[in-house]
Design a protein around this nucleic acid. Structure first.
Lengths: 175, 175
DNA sequence: ACCTGAACACCGTTCAAGT
DNA sequence: ACCTGAACACCGTTCAAGT
């Protein structure tokens, strides 16, 4: 059998769903494909790169049609989209979290959130910190009940919108 | 040489500081102690348990004297204390995050935050979600500059206090 | 109670060579 | 371009046995 990069990613996602992230080893993936472990290194320089590609594919599959939206609507949409993408696959949250922590992929949601915050009037600092906060909120609450997820998300979004309103009106908080 | 459990934890923390979390293997730790790998299994059932003990020790070393405080003061104190404890050791954030994710240890800061929120009037749900949100905020922003860390923390705390004020006055938000 | 010695069943990665 | 075969340098864990 001869494979292309995308085939390998595809099989890795299947392996993820069937056996979980811990069992997703280069050797096992190679065996699933009926190929020698070393063959994978033709497609990816190392395991991190493979996982990054898998993470990006999981996120890509979870993307919805682009719509023109208000900045806060978009912020919420990205969070829900991200959550759904991770819920669609076993250990999806751990996969995205680990790839994101390595800074080698899966950075799109965070970038989109930062953009939305800038549209909402955030300066560079608040956009960066706010996006990171939201990203990690979603990563940490994938396994929460939908109601709890929405509650916590609303808390963070409230904090952000309050801060933005203050920045716009020039009011300075002592916090 | 004969060691006690605490000696092993101690040497593991030194190894962490010297070589990082990735290099903290059972075999390497055993070699550092001048002992066979299998000897470690007299002290810990497996590597997860060892890491949990290391994480708890890192947190214990970071604890400050207990003070009587307002609930929101305590909330902020726990966050700063946690941050400082993680900053005191190489890969401290990744250590605490991984142990916490496994649910096997390092749960004290989250429990203390939930208690503080309850004292502030939060119901069980908000206490749980809020504590988890704050915990993961701190975990995610250890490497941020102090100013950015404080900004994001203030945003989340603002969101929480606003929600608590609304709950107390009986106002219901559509969010 | 604490450790040795040896083994088992795995890892990720490299490299020369094949088609 | 894509893969084989074989090796290197590691892992975590178990278990009988020693003191």
């Amino acid at each position: 059998m001869r494979y292309r990069r995308a085939d390998v990613v595809d099989r890795a996602i299947r392996g993820l769903d069937e056996h979980g992230l811990e069992a997703l080893s280069m050797r096992r993936l190679a065996a699933d494909l009926g190929v020698q472990p070393s063959a994978l290194y033709h497609h990816f320089p190392d395991k991190r790169a493979l996982l990054a590609a898998v993470a990006d594919e999981v996120l890509a599959r979870g993307r919805r049609a682009t719509e023109v939206m208000t900045w806060d609507g978009e912020l919420e949409l990205v969070c829900v989209e991200l959550r759904d993408a991770m819920l669609a696959h076993r250990d999806g949250d751990r996969l995205i979290a680990s790839v994101n922590a390595e800074g080698i992929g899966a950075g799109e949601p965070e970038a989109r959130m930062a953009d939305a915050l800038r549209r909402g009037g955030a300066d560079e600092r608040l956009a960066r910190v706010g996006a990171r906060t939201l990203l990690h909120y979603v990563l940490a609450h994938v396994d929460a009940e939908p109601g709890d997820f929405a509650l916590g998300l609303a808390v963070v979004l409230d904090g952000l919108t309050a801060r933005l309103a203050r920045e716009r009106t020039g009011y300075f908080s002592s916090r």
